[in-house]
């Protein structure tokens, strides 16, 4: 074993340094995978709910749809996918954070409650409006519009809390989707939200998943 000039043989100390660095990097990856939120997973779950759920709702309402979907089926699919994405978000966040407490905990709790209270109130308002004889057509436009607007604002506020420009961009993109959807009107707005809104979320999911796998 004669060492060549380019790479002198490693001394014990250098070899040890290399092993140590590998140990650090391996453990960092292990801890990150088990404690950090996989935003790619969460955006993927919500993007699927929007794309498939709202897509099914559009298919049920639009005469232009190539497949016939009964309205109740689309409704069950949409709500099921939204509940599913909510469950994925809650269980994944709780699993990654278990046993860890920090200064950011209160932010997460209050942000979670903002979603809960925001959508609870929106639901109450729209049901009440329906009970007060507001036009069915207006209500049908209000449901997706107001929901998407609330999501948009909550994303932008979440971005402010966690200093996350990507999240802000998504929130702002949803605002564009709402505006475009209202201009198109029903049932086209459902297609706009499914493709542009859900598509935006899935694009974000792909971006973050690729970034995580490369890191």
């Amino acid at each position: 074993m004669s060492p060549d000039k380019q790479s002198p043989p490693l001394t014990d100390e250098q070899l040890d340094a290399q092993q140590s660095l590998a140990l650090v990097q391996g453990q960092q990856a292990h801890v990150r995978a088990r404690t950090q939120i996989d935003v790619g997973l969460l955006y993927g779950a919500w993007g699927t709910a929007w794309l498939v759920g709202l897509g099914a709702m559009w298919a049920a309402r639009s005469g232009a749809s190539p497949v016939e979907v009964p309205v109740p089926v689309a409704g069950v699919l949409l709500s099921g996918l939204i509940v599913g994405a909510g469950v994925v978000t809650a269980t994944h966040s709780a699993r990654q954070a278990r046993g860890v407490r920090g200064e950011d905990d209160l932010r997460g709790v209050l942000y979670g409650w903002s979603w809960f209270i925001g959508f609870g109130t929106l639901f109450a308002v729209l049901v009440a409006l329906g009970g007060q004889g507001v036009d069915r057509e207006v209500l049908e436009l209000l449901w997706p519009t107001m929901s998407c607007l609330l999501v948009s604002v909550l994303y932008m506020m979440g971005a402010a809390v966690w200093r996350d420009p990507h999240m802000f961009a998504l929130g702002a993109w949803f605002a564009v989707c709402v505006t475009a959807g209202v201009l198109v009107g029903m049932p086209g707005m459902l297609a706009v939200m499914s493709l542009a809104g859900g598509g935006g979320l899935l694009a974000a999911a792909a971006y973050f998943t690729v970034r995580r796998l490369r890191a």
Partner: peptide
């Protein structure tokens, strides 16, 4: 060191 800046872990 990989956890959040002021995080504590059980």
């Amino acid at each position: 060191a990989t956890l959040g800046p002021r995080d504590q872990i059980t």
